[in-house]
């Protein structure tokens, strides 16, 4: 995923480009993995809590997204 952004006369090359949704999902994923690992005692509880955290992130992401869309009409 290479992209080229132009700021005035200067051209900046990025190795990678993410949109807001991709960034949010990536952030939710890494946070859920670490939160699941460090907060629970058994592997099953860690997996469940990680999935729960990821689900909460997704609900918040889509919920706030739709809320903002409704606000803007």
């Amino acid at each position: 995923m290479r992209t080229k952004l132009t700021h005035g006369k200067k051209t900046k090359r990025f190795l990678m480009s993410l949109d807001h949704f991709e960034m949010s999902v990536l952030f939710a994923l890494v946070c859920s993995v670490v939160l699941g690992l460090v907060t629970k005692r058994t592997d099953e509880a860690r997996l469940r809590y990680g999935l729960y955290c990821f689900g909460c992130f997704m609900v918040a992401l889509f919920g706030i997204g739709w809320f903002m869309r409704l606000l803007h009409g």
């Binding site: 700021h7 990025f14 949109d19 990536l26």
Partner: peptide, 12 residues
């Protein structure tokens, strides 16, 4: 610089 990519990068 301005732009969403460096902004996301610094937060990550």
């Amino acid at each position: 610089v301005a732009g969403h990519n460096p902004d996301y990068g610094s937060k990550l």
